[in-house]
Every structure is written in C-alpha cells, then in structure tokens.
Design a protein around this nucleic acid. Sequence first.
DNA 1: CCGTATCCACAGTGATACTG
DNA 2: CAGTATCACTGTGGATACGG
Lengths: 119, 119
Amino acid sequence: MLTECMSVISGAWAPNVIWCLRAGPRRFSELRADIPPVSAKVLSRRLSELEERGVLIRHVRPTSPPSVSYELTPLGTELIPALDAIVSVGHRLKILQAYELPLAERAEKEQKSEHVSAK
Amino acid sequence: MLTECMSVISGAWAPNVIWCLRAGPRRFSELRADIPPVSAKVLSRRLSELEERGVLIRHVRPTSPPSVSYELTPLGTELIPALDAIVSVGHRLKILQAYELPLAERAEKEQKSEHVSAK
DNA sequence: CCGTATCCACAGTGATACTG
DNA sequence: CAGTATCACTGTGGATACGG
C-alpha cells in the first residue's frame, strides 16, 4: 500500500523533475539543464512514467523545431509540500550532524589526552 | 540539494520502516513481520543507515535473549506528514486511473463499432 | 529540438547459512 | 533474538549513436 503509493515518485531524478516544475511549465531541454547529470534517455523515461501516473501532462506544439513542455497536474502539484517537508527535515538533519560530528571528535581527543591530564 | 535531502528516505523499505514506527517503538522482529518481504540483511542495513542519519534511535536492552527496539527521533517523526501526503496523492491517482482506464476502453470500442453504426 | 535504440556496468537486493 | 557473511542476479542508469 505505502510502497505502491511511494512509487509515484520512484525512479532517478523523479523528485527533481517535480521540483523543477513547481514554478510552472518547462521544456524538455530546460529540464535537462535544470538537472545537470541526467541523460536524455532517463529524463525521457521519467517524464513518460510521470505522465502515465498522472503527475504531469505533456504539451506538444507542432512547430519547427518541435517544442514540448511539461506541466504538473493538480494532483502532481500536491506533491510539492510533501517534498518541501522532506527537504526541510533533511536539511536540519544535515545541520545536526555538522554539529554533532565535531562533538564526537572532541570527545575522542579528550579521551586521548586523558592519560596525560590524569598522570 | 534536493537529491541530498531526499536521500534520507532512500533505500528499499526505508519509508515503510519510518511508517511502521509512527505509532511508537518497535522491535527488530516486529518490523520484519510488519514488512513481510524484507530480508534480515536489508532491514538491518536500513536501520543502521536511518540511525546514522538521525531519523531513528536504537535501544538495546542487555537481556537474554537480547532485545533491541527502534524509535523515531523528533526529526524523524516530522517525516510522517510528508509520507502521509504522498500516500494521499498516490491513492487518489490510483482511483483516477481506475476511472480513466474504462473510459479509454470505451472510446476504443466505440471506434471499432464506428464503421458498423455508420454503414 | 526531442526523443529512442543499443550496449554496458554496477549498485543494491534477495536467499542462504552461520555467529554472539 | 538480532544480526553478519557470502554469493548470484537483475533492475536501473550512463554513454553513445541514430531517427522524426
């Protein structure tokens, strides 16, 4: 159940794609530029999957050269706050660890110098 | 940035583990039973990763046989609403598709019978 | 510009068996 | 009970090249 629902954001870069579309529609090449290390193949795959799942919609303008843009559906938009929350927690976890790590190092040093100060 | 933050819930069954701990502490074997197809190896890995990330804490009671329980940290608890939101969206997407799929099939059938009704 | 096809490589999982 | 070690496998992503 949960696993099935979580799969809507599964696949490499899927959350990034949703994230990049939060401010409005974007074109294929723009998305590729937004998420530097993503290959065209994977981005293409992810976009079709997300379209099939109903997270975003694909607009094709039959110009020359062809122009394709992607946009979040209403339900897709509802994923943004969830991603926001995760990012918020993730960010604070990072900060905590940047603070706790030096503490651990300090404790280690104190233990090392123990036989010195205790002699 | 987003990728880095999203990685706090990365790894197989990680969201499920968090989900199963939302109601309170749980023991290793209980978690294994909660998430049927998870192997001891993977569950063990995931739990240590989540502990290292600060999502949960590990309690060891030196009884015999040994008893170990896991509990969400305050920050870990904050992930619950986010998962809730994703599940909610995922659930509604499912329903939409169960509704849209028959529509597509109907349209297909109508197209098939077109030359019949139009003859 | 927007993809798809092919090939390759590897991270990550699952199964099994074994320890404290 | 709560893990760890080993191994084999496969899904998934990256690079490249090509097509609409």
